[in-house]
């Protein structure tokens, strides 16, 4: 009887593991699209807005950059801030100003060929405080080759204000190193918890004992939330049967004289709070 059980186990695991093989396929060149990436916060700058172009998916070299553009950011009180070209497609502001909660910001790019690209105005919303980070040990623990893995994940209690819809993003760093993989993009909203003190846990990012984790909590707009939501889906679930279908990942940038043109990337505005937690036993 015991053998029988093993046979099933073997057959089943043999047969039904989906497999992934890297392959070489020809992907024709598509049109080169402009990618804009920039963020204003309520912390002092300098802020960076980066302009790059798409290249072939199989191209091993880094993306082409746009050098001779003019980049400015305006706020809803008609002030404007210039960004000057530094290097590697980065346009940098001076550090004399910072974003103010309650104001909207939009960026405008004048490309070398005279095309103007604009973002929609992004409201810089206040962000609720972050002061009660906690960690939990994964239970039951994973066992790899007979060794019990000691793994932890973090979370926090957040007091959500009732009067507005809030959208949150966490950027994490582990022992001083920012986590940049798509799996580390953490977003959540107050859709089901508006006005409540709620708990958020991030069980998909695992840490070890004595890790120091800095959480940067940012307020983002609904549009930015939707953008990241689709970005995560496109970068992680694509192609799987339960995954989303490939789609244009539109941000908030357009060419007003050709609204159909696809401009990639996002220009956003956030208020930021941070907190640090060290994983030591007896939380």
């Amino acid at each position: 009887m015991k053998y029988w059980h093993y046979i099933i186990l073997i057959l089943v695991s043999l047969g039904l593991n989906s497999c992934e093989d890297p392959i070489e396929i020809d992907i024709p060149d598509g049109p080169q699209r402009l990618v804009v990436e920039g963020w204003i916060t309520d912390q002092f700058g300098p802020y960076t807005i980066r302009l790059t172009l798409t290249n072939n998916f199989n191209d091993g070299s880094s993306n082409p950059i746009v050098e001779d553009a003019q980049v400015i950011v305006t706020d809803s009180e008609n002030r404007f801030y210039t960004f000057s070209y530094q290097s590697d497609g980065n346009y940098v502001s001076d550090d004399s100003w910072r974003g103010e909660p309650g104001l909207s910001y939009r960026c405008q790019v004048l490309l070398p060929d005279g095309t103007i690209i604009r973002s929609t105005p992004e409201l810089l919303q206040p962000v609720p405080s972050l002061d009660s980070l906690f960690f939990k040990e994964v239970f039951p623990p994973n066992i790899i080759e007979g060794i019990i893995q000691e793994e932890f994940f973090i979370g926090s209690t957040i007091r959500d204000p009732a009067d507005v819809s809030n959208f949150y993003r966490w950027r994490l760093s582990q022992n001083g190193l920012p986590l940049t993989e798509v799996s580390s993009v953490v977003i959540f909203s107050d859709r089901f918890v508006n006005g409540n003190e709620f708990q958020i846990e991030v069980p998909q990012i695992l840490f070890g004992r004595l890790d120091t984790i800095v959480v940067r909590q940012e307020s983002i707009s609904e549009l930015a939330f939707d953008y990241f939501d689709l970005l995560i889906a496109q970068a992680t679930t694509l192609g799987q049967s339960s995954g989303t279908a490939p789609a244009v990942l539109r941000g908030n940038l357009t060419n007003p004289s050709d609204p159909e043109e696809i401009i990639l990337g996002y220009f956003g505005a956030s208020a930021v709070v941070s907190d640090t937690i060290i994983i030591v036993q007896d939380n």
């Binding site: 049109p31 699209r33 990618v35 998916f57 993306n63 940049t180 993009v185 990942l249 990639l264």
Partner: peptide, 13 residues
């Protein structure tokens, strides 16, 4: 039709 980098993440377009 191409690829690009946003927030340090390589993305297909």
């Amino acid at each position: 039709e191409g690829k690009y980098v946003f927030d340090g993440i390589v993305l297909p377009s």
